[in-house]
Each structure stands twice: as C-alpha cells, then as structure tokens.
Design a binder for these strands. Structure first.
Length: 414
RNA sequence: GUGGGCAUAGCUCAGUUGGUUAGAGCGCCAGGUUGUGGCCCUGGAGGUCGUGGGUUCAACUCCCACUGUUCACCCCA
C-alpha cells in the first residue's frame, strides 16, 4: 500500500455532512448583501508581499510571523492573502472603481491563510466574508456596515452575540491620547503583567486588550480614548451611535476595544459569542480613512467588516436543521429499471430532487436508503404495476400509499 | 513561537500489576417478510492499537523521538 498523504496542518476537508451549513450561511450572506446594495468582488488568493506589509503595518503579528510568503519562479515575493481588505483596496485603486460611482460597496467571500498554531476556531486556511465601502466619511455608512453584519448574526439564530463598539480617533487626536496613556502606564508598571509592561512601550493600545486578571483593575482606571477625541471624531462617534439606536441595534460601548490591525481610524467594532472559548470573536471591523492612500490611491475614506466563517458556523451550533436530501426515491421491484430511469428523469425535469437504486438492492434496503436520504415520497415500480399502467406513491412521513397512473403520478406529490 | 492534555474499528470510547485470540455502543452490509423504511431480533464485514525507535521471554500497556489533534498563552475572524 502506498502511504496515504494527509491534509496540511490547520486545514480542513469540508464534507457533505457539514457543507450544507456553509451553503446556508453563504446564501444568507449574499441575500443580505444584495439588500444593502453590496456587489461581490473576487480578487487573487495571492498578492505581492508588499501589499500586505503596507496595508496591515510592518509591526503587526500577521505580517511579522503569520504570512505564507514564497518567491515565485521570477524571484518575486508573493504571499497568500492573510485577510481581504488590502486586496480589495488594491483592486479598488487599480481598477479605478471610483469611476463606477461612489460610494463603492463591495463584498468578498473566500479562503485566507495565516501560519498559526491551530486550535478550535483557528485554522491556517480559514474563510472570511467581508464588506468594504469606499468614498464616504459619513457615519451613516459606518452604521450601515454594522447593521448589515448585525442582521446576519441575528438571522443566524446564534445565541448571545454581543456587539462592542468604540472609537479610536484619528491621526489628529490619537497621538494626544497615546501620550496620556503612556504616562498612566508608566506610573502603573508595578501592577501590570510582564507582557503589558512590554506592550506599554511597543503598542500601548494593546494593553487595554489584556485578559490577565491582575491587570484588570489597573486597566479600568486608565484614561479612556473616548474622553480625548477631537470634535470631528467625537461627533462622528455620536452619530454612529444615534443611527444604530434609530435602527434598534443593540450595542455595548467598550472603550478598551482596540483591534489588532494598524489601519483603523475612528469607529471600531467587534462581534463576539460566549460559547467559543478563547476564539470568541466571530467578526469585526471599522473605519480606515487612511488606508487607500497608503496603498497608493488618492485619499479615500472607507469602512468595512470581516466575518470568520468557521467560527460563525461553530457559534450557530445545532440551531440549524438540514434539508432533506431528496423529495422522491424510486423503488425498483423486479425487472423495472428501465421504467424507473424514465420516471427518475421526468421527476427531475419537474424540479424534484430525485434518486433511485443503482446497487440492485433488495426492496427493503431500498426503502432504508430512502429513509436515510429523508425522502418525502417513494415511487414504487413493480411488474404488476407496470402491467396495469399504474404505480404506487408512498408518503414516507405517514406511510400512506396511493395508487396512481403511470402517466400522471407526479400530480400526487404535494 | 511557549506550556499542558490526548492519539485503539467509519464515529464515541473500554482494555486489569506488561501475558499470547484487542472489545462495546452507534453506524455500515445481509437475513428474519417470494414486493415496503423508522422499532425489534440474528449474523457479518471492518483494526499493522498515530509513525519510528528502545526496554523485555513477551508491549495497546513502560521509555524516547516525531507527527497529528486539543486546551491555554499569544494573536485574531
């Protein structure tokens, strides 16, 4: 025997027993995007490495140690995309999408790649759905992006989804806050964990995110960004909140929410669920008014959101029920395969999901198979029936069997 | 990248102080009904006990390494 090659670490085979969940979620996503006038965009799965270095920030963990980077045969450094926004921004600039009218509202759905240690809800190849809206700095679009995501989570039937909201200011007001924060951190070094002491210098905002119990008291006493926002940012934040309230979106303000990517400005938000352990963030996003410029486009305000598909499906749990595989199963008795083949294709032309036996199984085994496929009806074709031009149609829910003519038994299906 | 747990049938798991033929439930296949599913009964197929080394007369069991998986850290979706 040849050695079986197994799939790469941190990747998954999506089998028929699970894939229906994906399809159901994708359908919901596409319907909601259509309602909000978001159009799909599909970009390459790999890009020049520089795109992500510029887009996400050199100092982020993703760029520093989690990217699948390789040289192609021409010696160019390429990277499997670790997230979707940078590519969409690139495509927006490269294809001059502002020319198609603003705001440009785009969504994407597909695999992303990060070299991480896998655990529940965290894989090396995972999938994200995301939306990006370019060309307007209006808070109503921040709210709309959040509303779209909120609507999807609500319709999923997932329990205990929480929306956290914050504003992290802009290049005008954030430096001012950072200084105050650093000062406060300096005074409280003693009471912080070793990690936070490091972060106080390298990335002070992330201290706010620390989950260490010992740090909590100190963190809650630190200055809040929302108290230091400039008028522009503060007004923007207020209007986002007002619009969400107008739309009955439940949210919790969390002045400690900062998020890990460097490109965010003003609005940031995150959706989390209870039952997912450490990987409880199922989606998040925010405004990124400086990113398009950084990628090389002209200054363009933008706001977006990304959802982790695997985590979202985990969060749904068993709240969903699988559709039956077939409406109709044709049971062959004796030498009636030819008739069965004819009726099978007739049923399918009528739009029924139909199946029949291809293993020459016993009648009993055929009914078992029908049951396994959760068939609503069985069409029974035996020599006696064919002789008289009749067939039997059995309702598998209540076991009732009725006799119909071979030519119009389809009328018996409700 | 760091630390801990786990790895036996398709799935969930038993397996005694190391002892010769590795089990159960579910699932799968067949029969119990010359042409009728779900429930029940009977039988059957299916395992190089994650991989490779070592200790031993003897290893699923003990030791080491590797791989996978899982939880936490970290990070994020």
């Amino acid at each position: 025997m040849v050695k079986v090659i197994s799939r790469p670490k941190g990747t998954n085979d999506l089998l028929p027993e699970d894939i229906w969940r994906w399809q159901k979620l994708e359908l919901l996503i596409r319907e909601e995007c259509a309602k909000f006038n978001y159009q799909e965009i599909r970009t390459p799965i790999f890009e020049e490495t520089g795109l992500f270095q510029r887009g996400l920030g050199e100092a982020t963990d993703i760029v520093e140690k989690e990217m699948y980077t390789f040289n192609d045969k021409g010696g160019r450094s390429m990277t499997l995309r670790p997230e979707g926004t940078a590519s969409v921004v690139r495509a927006y600039v490269e294809n001059n999408l502002k020319g198609t009218g603003l705001p440009a509202k785009l969504y994407y759905l597909g695999p992303m790649f990060r070299y991480e240690r896998p655990q529940a809800g965290r894989y090396r190849q995972f999938h994200q759905f995301g939306i990006e809206c370019f060309g307007s700095s209006e808070p109503s679009l921040d709210a709309e992006v959040i509303m779209l995501a909120y609507g999807i989570y609500t319709k999923l039937g997932a329990k205990n989804v929480e929306l956290k909201l914050n504003s992290i200011g802009c290049p005008n007001c954030r430096p001012n806050y950072l200084e105050k924060l650093k000062e406060a951190l300096k005074e409280n070094q003693e009471s912080l964990c070793s990690n936070c002491r490091k972060r106080s210098l390298t990335n002070p905002l992330r201290v706010l995110d620390c989950k260490e119990k010992g740090c909590q008291a100190t963190i809650s006493a630190l200055p809040r960004i929302t108290d230091y926002l400039c008028t522009d940012c503060s007004d923007h934040y207020t209007e986002v909140k007002e619009t969400l309230t107008l739309w009955n979106v439940d949210f919790v303000e969390d002045s400690r929410l900062v998020r890990g990517l460097d490109y965010y400005t003003k609005t940031v938000f995150e959706f989390s669920v209870e039952n997912l352990g450490a990987q409880n963030a199922v989606g998040g996003g925010g405004r990124y008014d400086k990113l398009v410029e950084e990628i090389g486009g002209e200054p363009t305000p933008a706001v977006g959101f990304a959802m982790g598909i695997e985590r979202t499906i985990l969060a749904v749990g068993d709240a969903w029920q699988k559709e039956p595989d077939v409406d109709l199963y044709i049971v062959i008795i004796g030498d009636t395969k030819k008739e069965a083949l004819l009726e099978l294709i007739r049923a399918r032309k009528q739009g029924l999901k139909a199946e029949m036996d291809h293993l020459n199984r016993s009648v009993k085994a055929q009914f078992k198979q029908a049951n396994r496929l959760n068939a609503k009806y069985c069409l029974i074709l035996g020599p006696d029936e064919i002789k008289q031009g009749k067939v039997k149609l059995k309702n598998m829910r209540d076991g009732e069997e009725i006799q119909l003519t071979l030519s119009d038994w389809l009328g018996g299906i409700k």
